[in-house]
Every structure is written in C-alpha cells, then in structure tokens.
C-alpha cells in the first residue's frame, strides 16, 4: 500500500484578476535554499508585462473610483484571507527562505499585520497628507493626495513575503494599481498571497504579480511609458540603470538607499500626487 501522491500546485502569473501561464510558454525552476525542487514557475515575458500594465491602468480607475472605506475593507479582507491560509503561507515561506517553522510563522504574522496597518491608511491619508490652504483671496482652496496611477514594483529578493507586502500594500492603499515582479528565486509566497486577492474583492488588475527573471523584466517595467512610479527595492545592484530608464518618462522612483527613505510614510508619499483645487467664493 503506497502513500497517497501529492497534488502539486502550479504557480502562475496573476494578471487582471486571472491566473495565467506566460504567453511565452516559458517557465523556470525554483528550488529551496538547499537546492530541492519546489516548482516550475511561469517565466513572464515582456508581452506579459505589457499586458499587466494595461490591466493595471484599467484596474486603477476602478480602484480609485471606489470609496476609501471600501478600499480599506478590501485590503482588510486580503488580511483575513491570508490569516485563514496562514499555514499555507508558512509552508511556502519555509521552503522559500529556509526558515524554521516558528520563524516563518512570525514572519507571516508580521506580513498580515502589515496589510492590516495599510488597510487602515486608506481613509486616513486624505486628512493626513491633504488639507485646506488659507490663500489670501476669495477662494476655497484644498489639497488632496491622489494616486500616481500605475506603480511598477521590483519586490525585494530576500524577504519574499514581508518585503513583498511592504512594497505592494503602500502604493495600493493610496489608490494605485501595482505591477509587481516577485522575488526571482523566492517567488512562491508572493504568488500565493496574490492569489488570495481573488477572494478579497480586489477589482481585476489592481494587483498584478509577475514571476520571472528580474534582469529581463525590470528594464521593461522601468522604461514603460504608462507606468507612473517605480519601486526599486528588489534590485539594489541594478538600481542606477533602472532609475536612468525611469527618467525618460519622469517616473516617481522610490529607492531604499535614499536619505530619509526609512521614514515610515516615505514609500506611500512617493506614489501620491498632491492635487490642489481652487474654487471661487462668491454670491
């Protein structure tokens, strides 16, 4: 009597609220830190990336059109889904990062708590970052933080779950859509967490996660004209080159090495624009 054979999971790209293999048909092998086979994950192409940006642009309009209260509930529900499937995340995290079970559990807990923290921000940023301006004239003048639009994210390579949460939840909570490149060698925790958006009422295209080779995909993300912001946390070594590409379309760029980057709201502030409205006051 043999033991039951596992049903192995296929890891796909998360684009436009759907799960797809790369249009290129490519995949690459992901292993544990000790070299054991984990999975063949999709190796996204430039075309996949461009499709993800198109999906993100459409998703962003829906995301921003919903109320801040609603966005908070959606992000909170994402945390609920993650909590319910925490054991699965722990397992993936152990494989990806070679952590002991207790360490992985702690990391998953911190990641979930961080999503909750950002969920609470959605309806606070307007008051914290915006306000009324006492101009010297008969005008009501106010400034509101509005999302930059589509933010491209190169997720941290080492911290495959907590790092991923940080780089995607910050731009999401202020109303951006995100196209994220998961950690190249440790992509599965991000893919599993992104899958959970499907049961958390995320509009399609709000969070898109690509797996693949960072060196291949990141330049296309950095130079894409319809990407408004870029978080380079996951490519410290090639950050300069990518930041140069981003300059062609005047992208907002977040880099962890920048002075002041450790400010807890810096990442969030990098991907909001201040929109100021003057309205006449009269009879």
């Amino acid at each position: 009597m043999s033991e039951r054979l596992d049903v192995k999971k296929t890891y796909k790209l998360v684009v436009n609220g759907a799960f797809a293999r790369s249009e290129s048909g490519r995949s690459y092998e992901v292993t544990t830190s000790t070299g054991a086979f984990v999975a063949n994950v999709a190796q996204a192409s430039r075309k996949d990336l461009r499709d993800a940006v198109v999906a993100a642009r459409a998703g962003q309009a829906k995301w921003w059109a919903s109320t801040a209260y609603n966005r908070g509930q959606v992000l909170y529900r994402w945390a609920e889904m993650a909590e319910a499937r925490a054991a699965e995340l722990v397992e993936h995290l152990q494989l990806a990062e070679g952590l002991k079970k207790r360490e992985a559990q702690a990391s998953v807990s911190r990641a979930i708590d961080r999503i909750v923290w950002y969920a609470g921000w959605t309806d606070k940023v307007t008051q914290v970052l915006g306000g009324a301006n006492p101009v010297a004239g008969p005008f009501f003048n106010f400034s509101l933080p509005v999302p930059s639009g589509v933010v491209g994210v190169v997720a941290p390579q080492e911290s495959s779950l907590e790092g991923f949460v940080e780089v995607v939840a910050a731009p999401l909570c202020v109303g951006n859509a995100v196209v994220a490149l998961a950690s190249e060698r440790r992509p599965t925790p991000a893919v599993v967490l992104a899958e959970m958006t499907a049961t958390a009422d995320f509009p399609g295209g709000v969070l898109n996660v690509l797996t693949g080779l960072t060196a291949e995909l990141a330049p296309h993300l950095a130079s894409h004209e319809d990407v408004d912001g870029l978080d380079l946390s996951g490519c410290a070594d090639r950050g300069d080159e990518l930041a140069r590409l981003a300059a062609a379309s005047i992208k907002r760029v977040y880099r962890e090495r920048d002075k002041g980057a450790e400010n807890p709201l810096r990442r969030l502030r990098t991907f909001v624009e201040t929109s100021t409205v003057w309205h006449t006051i009269g009879q």
Binding site: A136, N141, I250, E273, T274, S275, V277, W278, H279
Partner: peptide, 29 residues
C-alpha cells in the same frame, strides 16, 4: 478626474504661498 496638480475652478493662474503647486506625469514631481 483631471490628472493635474493644480485645478482652478472659475478662476485661473492664481498663486499663493500656502497653496502647493506642481505637476503630475511629465510635468514633474
């Protein structure tokens, strides 16, 4: 719905030190 850093309603080209000014997209950051 306008993608702009400053929006003037029923006025135009007004400036004030208390009022943030600047652009989005290729108008800068």
């Amino acid at each position: 719905r306008l993608r702009a850093g400053v929006i003037w309603a029923n006025t135009y080209n007004k400036f004030d030190p208390t009022s943030p000014f600047g652009g989005v997209r290729e108008s800068g950051f």
